[in-house]
Design a protein around this nucleic acid. Sequence first.
DNA 1: TCGACACAATGAAACGATTCAACTCGAGAG
DNA 2: CTCTCGAGTTGAATCGTTTCATTGTGTCGA
Lengths: 336, 336
Amino acid sequence: MVRAASIKDVANQAGVAVGTVSNVLNYPDRVSSTTRDRVLAAIAELGFVRNDAARQLRAGRSRTMGMIVLDAGNPFFSSVARAAEEAAARAGSAVLLGNSSHDPRRERHYIELFEEQRMQGILISPTGDVSARLAAAEAAGLKIVLVDAPSDGQRFSSVAVDNAAGGYVAVRHLLDAGRRRIAFVGGNATLRQVQDRLAGARRAVAEVPGATLEVLTAADLTVLGGRGVGDDLRRRTPGTAPDALFCANDLLALGVIQSLAMLGGLRIPEDIALIGYDDIDFAASAVVPLSSIRQPAELIGRTAVELLLEQTADEPPAPRSVVFTPELVARASTGH
Amino acid sequence: MVRAASIKDVANQAGVAVGTVSNVLNYPDRVSSTTRDRVLAAIAELGFVRNDAARQLRAGRSRTMGMIVLDAGNPFFSSVARAAEEAAARAGSAVLLGNSSHDPRRERHYIELFEEQRMQGILISPTGDVSARLAAAEAAGLKIVLVDAPSDGQRFSSVAVDNAAGGYVAVRHLLDAGRRRIAFVGGNATLRQVQDRLAGARRAVAEVPGATLEVLTAADLTVLGGRGVGDDLRRRTPGTAPDALFCANDLLALGVIQSLAMLGGLRIPEDIALIGYDDIDFAASAVVPLSSIRQPAELIGRTAVELLLEQTADEPPAPRSVVFTPELVARASTGH
DNA sequence: TCGACACAATGAAACGATTCAACTCGAGAG
DNA sequence: CTCTCGAGTTGAATCGTTTCATTGTGTCGA
């Protein structure tokens, strides 16, 4: 096969004009059934597949949307992505996924890729402050929806979960269990979600006299990063370690559990209580079942697609921000 | 903004011909530095972004490749995908991800999407027998690499892990621990990987007189599916349950652990030993640290991209099949 | 002074689909 | 028999880029 069949080849084969073939593909009712059958037969015979680049060039825009997630390996994001794909498929659209891995360079790379491809829009969980870059993409006609991030001054639609509330609930839960020397385990400090969870945590601690909040930094927001923090804690002199840990996500918390519970030293929850964030499927099956803050991942993904499709209308409404409320799930790691 | 800036607008702005702008973008050395600077200034001023659809239309093919995975929520696949993305980025290419979720319809949808987009190629973990569909895509010029699946008669390049060997090693390990009433927990029976792991398991059982192999079916290859199997086992009359379980993947095994160890009844590994497959990060931090069969996910992803790039050469070599060997990781769930 | 040569820059053609004004052809009305 | 109408079909123009043969310009050697 030297060259893929084009619409022109189909037209020749069927003995009709190219415009007619195009009509068969896009407006079947405009074509008489005999002609239509002849064209469809030619298409089947030649194995013709429409060239989306050409269609897009003429149409000015693609029908697919791009999604950029912070960590495709995090079950929370894969749930969000999956729900988004399904919602898009139902609407006759498609989602293609890029994984920034918290790396602004890779994120930028995907934004540019999507912009070059003139995608319908971008669903993005930003690594940090990319609003300038996104504004440029929007100026080029892409619709932007921020996912799991608050709207940037109503410029873009967004779907988020109230991270400050989540952080507050998590630490409040630890305080209610009688813990006072709380530590927050975060990673990349520039990440908005993490900042907000920390802010909520601070607010909860401030309400209880005598309670303190220490901030620990993990290498990254992964199981491995959490294991590192756990290793550090085990090396502390007894009594100086916190009596409760609030981890910025479940992966971190699972890493801490791996380090503490398996390699010995501190016991969970007796010596140190632990709560994570996201309530991923693995949280319930950890060595010590992990308390967590549940976020409605599917709902987030679905809503993100809806917000984007809303913006693709001829007269798009003003950008909207949807905020969900997270929910405490108490398990053994905090004494339940 | 009515319309995104085109190369023609840039040419006007800079006072040069469109061909020159194109040269600045693609062959900067062909252009004098003064002209180049002028063009670059115009590009910056207009916020010009190359329209990839037009470029592709002219070039005949995209520079990005599509990847279709069976389950983006499975950490094994997300590791593979991530490694592939990185390898592609290093080669100046990009990977966009689609998630078939074991659904042949969604898989087909993505294949067609990639074909319409005239992607460079497709990296795919097929759900079942899609070789006819893939052959059509190949005839249209896409390069195909089968990922985590054996080659289909050398027609396509492929990168796989010897699943039969993995299944054999897993069950051999259970037998060596003195277990005799083995059960295999699989899901979708049409999945080649699962079939092969079962075949390896059968071979190991056949070598030991008195050993038996029962096959249990999970609703799907997820944590939830495993939990269902665990619930069934707990309801069996004592003594009729198997004394060892080989799960087709770690998600299943973790689900079984959730059901058995947490809700009580059978103890792991005393009453029932357990081994999974993939050795995902969460395996080590389970309630009972999970023995597993490790697959080199990063290596698989990287190799897949290499095989694809190999095929994009002007004179592509014959398709190659790379097969890796899995490795036993023994932990507490089998008595270590 | 002229020709040869390299280097820059030009601009028309091509890629494959969609769009749309124009055309054809019967059927039905007058 | 002519006119109108509308359904069906046609094919040229268009989208934004790349390619490449052609033209223009300046330098150098003879």
